[in-house]
């Protein structure tokens, strides 16, 4: 297929997933396991999209395929209409594990991407200063990661991803290992970055609160094989802050999402309340 045909088909989407299926073999004798089945998604420019689903539903696999870290068995991922065939710096990734290079200082971590792409030193210096400031780490630029807390290392990770001038940020449960307080701070930080840059974010999580708090759109995956069960569009007002977390609208949105997730798991729920929930719309995919 040629790039031109792709761009015609996906003209409106920043990131599009088409007919994506992924299988792998395991065990002896090898049994084929379908992890993801016929996923279709369109992610608009500047949107904050969360992907949720039961553990093992393939949401991380889906994200890694969007990043070009894994190749799907069938189907394709299109970024600005061109097929993703491997990692590219336009698709920034933030990992669940601690991925900050421990042998580099904070500023050298942040400068790593630009340096890899041959950005001149003066420009690198400007990027490092800007992004360290943006995540509140200016005082720790010369520190090594082992001297920082888990939350601060995540900030380094975010700064490193943003400093590489990505077009889309792919985040794979980045705050799953953090305590509740730190997690909330990091969610605020990620919303600030999203707002100030206007860059598309795809954020995988298993935390309903996190998905409700952050997203414009939540993609709910069903399990084994992972399929798109529903796409839930949030109507929570922005900007979102501490007030948002304790508001009624938040509770209603969470309830809707929870109901949808239960359905995705194939479990019976009493749907009446959720279906009436006014500020959130649910469209079946």
């Amino acid at each position: 297929m040629n790039a031109r045909a792709d761009s015609v088909r996906a003209v409106s989407a920043k990131l599009a997933v088409r007919g994506l299926t992924h299988r792998y073999s395991m065990g002896t004798p090898p049994t084929e396991l379908t992890v993801l089945s016929r996923i279709d998604l369109e992610i608009a420019r500047g949107e904050f999209v969360c992907i949720i689903g039961e553990s093992g539903c393939g949401k991380s696999t889906l994200l890694r395929m969007m990043a070009g870290l894994l190749m799907p068995s069938e189907g394709e991922v299109l970024h600005d209409g061109t097929r993703v065939r491997g990692v590219r710096h336009e698709l920034g990734f933030v990992f669940q594990q601690d991925a900050v290079f421990p042998w580099l200082t904070v500023e050298k971590n942040v400068a790593y991407g630009p340096k890899s792409r041959g950005v001149p030193k003066a420009e690198r210096e400007r990027l490092v200063a800007h992004w360290c400031e943006a995540v509140g780490l200016t005082a720790f630029r010369k520190a090594f990661p082992k001297q920082l807390s888990g939350g601060m290392r995540k900030r380094v990770d975010l700064a490193r991803a943003y400093a590489n001038s990505p077009d889309v940020l792919l985040m794979d449960e980045p705050f799953a290992a953090l305590d509740v307080q730190t997690k909330a701070e990091m969610q605020d930080a990620v919303l600030d970055l999203w707002k100030s840059t206007g860059k598309t974010v795809v954020f995988v999580t298993h935390d309903l609160d996190e998905a409700v708090f952050l997203s414009d759109v939540v993609v709910v995956l069903s399990s084994r094989p992972g399929r798109v069960h529903a796409i839930v569009r949030s109507t929570l007002a922005r900007p979102r802050n501490g007030e948002t977390r304790v508001g009624d609208a938040f509770a209603v949105a969470k309830r809707t999402l929870w109901t949808t997730l239960q359905q995705a798991r194939g479990r019976a729920v009493a749907p009446a309340k959720a279906r009436q929930a006014p500020p959130t719309t649910t469209e079946r995919a």
Binding site: A67, L69, H89, F93, D98, R117
Partner: peptide, 16 residues
């Protein structure tokens, strides 16, 4: 592997 993946997503070449 996590460091290798991180470097690759940041645009590092195989040699880098």
């Amino acid at each position: 592997q996590i460091y290798v993946d991180a470097a690759r997503t940041l645009g590092a070449s195989r040699w880098r």
